[in-house]
Design a protein around this nucleic acid. Structure first.
Lengths: 229, 229
DNA sequence: AAAGCCATAATTGTCGACAAGTTTGAAACG
DNA sequence: CGTTTCAAACTTGTCGACAATTATGGCTTT
């Protein structure tokens, strides 16, 4: 599933493989938020020794999916309004910057290619309206490619490796509901148009709004759940 | 040396200790930029087994001081104009954001405490003019505390853990020369004043300029060296 | 009965050895 | 003489076992 995604590099080492498996399990909620991650237990579950497992845990900490304490161990992070705020506050700023840079640097051919991608999304959306999976992948592809257009390796690393999976965890577990889905498409179009016009300032502004809207959507769901407890 | 720095957490595990030692060695240039890092060699040099050493290498990769390839190994990064541009482009944006947030959220007591810190720096500078060590530590302390004032854990993590040491490596190896040193003090004062006035927009702008100036300074040194080759 | 303490069990951190992969360099070939 | 091939040497990745630290649970004490 989703093996075509540009974000999934082919695993070369055992640690790579188990990282991807655990990452997926956490994002999807198969390993529940807040739970303790026992090294012996996970090693048995994924049929590996503790060495590559610990390597995987270290990388999971790097992308903020687990928290580790020396001599104590690792826990899956808990989703919270406070963490969501901090995460999206940062994404707003960084993806806004990515847009500004992409407007300056993205080659014309890539802009055209992105336009074609959005047209494909639109067609796909018509076929399966409300189908969140395609939408989500499409949304991610769009963001992903804009970020790559920034041509800043540190920015790309932060957004695509370190913040990506946590943001995805919020979206997968708290979902994106009805009307928001189709609106996101229009916002993508507007952002890309600004980039095509080489209007970095506008692309920045539109992307910030786009991310803010996405955050508001998730925060509503999250508050409902937090109040239940 | 520099054990009082707020950035240096007390090492609890062997991996922590060797990480700090290697980190220091790379930043200071004792392990030269671009050189291969042999695991057996480093293990012998620091008197540890390869397990904690590999843990340290993983964290060095995280803060962009080394690059690793599967089944090949780790190399110390090379300093380049292109990498400097990307790094400072990002720092400008992120520390600008930190200033804006700090202007909103930093408690009054912390603002006062920072004022006292700058006064102390000024006194210290008079005592040892041109002494780059104190200046540098002081500069870092200032930036560090403004970042903490942002109250955004992901932002703090990126700036203080992941980008900090590479930025420091550029500064240590390419230096901060004469007139820039004293100017930095004045810029700090202006930034802090804006934060004290709760003028986030201005603090953002001033911090961006401050970082841009610092970058220009380093880039000049770097270009000279690159042309020599 | 609640709080503190100690021994025990379980977990994490580290080690040395083996397996799998890559680099090196010399011999064979064009 | 330059290029290719291949094997030996070395490096990285993985494993199982041991050491050090933390969590558990029953016992004592007040």
């Amino acid at each position: 599933m989703a093996l075509h995604s540009p974000l999934l590099k082919a695993p070369v080492t055992t640690a790579d493989r188990v990282l991807q498996e655990i990452q997926h399990a956490i994002v999807e909620g198969d390993i529940p938020a807040g739970s303790k991650m026992s090294e012996p237990e996970l090693a048995k579950r994924f049929q590996v020794s503790r060495a590559p497992l610990r390597e995987a845990l270290a990388r999971l900490e790097r992308c903020h999916l687990v928290e580790r304490l020396p001599n104590v161990g690792a826990r899956v992070v808990r989703l919270s309004v406070e963490s969501l705020r901090a995460l999206y506050e940062l994404r707003e700023e960084l993806e806004g910057l990515a847009c500004r840079l992409a407007a300056e640097k993205m080659p014309e051919s890539e802009v055209q290619s992105l336009k074609a991608l959005l047209d494909k999304h639109l067609a796909t959306q018509r076929v399966s309206e409300g189908e969140s999976y395609y939408q989500e992948e499409g949304d991610l592809d769009f963001h992903y490619r804009v970020i790559l257009g920034s041509d800043n390796s540190y920015l790309i690393n932060i957004l695509c490796d370190e913040l990506y999976y946590l943001a995805r965890m919020y979206r997968v577990q708290l979902g994106m509901n009805g009307p928001r889905v189709s609106r996101a498409f229009d916002e993508h179009r507007a952002i890309l148009q600004a980039i095509a016009n080489r209007d970095g300032e506008l692309a920045d502004l539109l992307m910030r709004r786009h991310i803010r809207a996405s955050r508001d959507n998730i925060e509503i769901q999250l508050r409902e759940i937090e109040e239940q407890t």
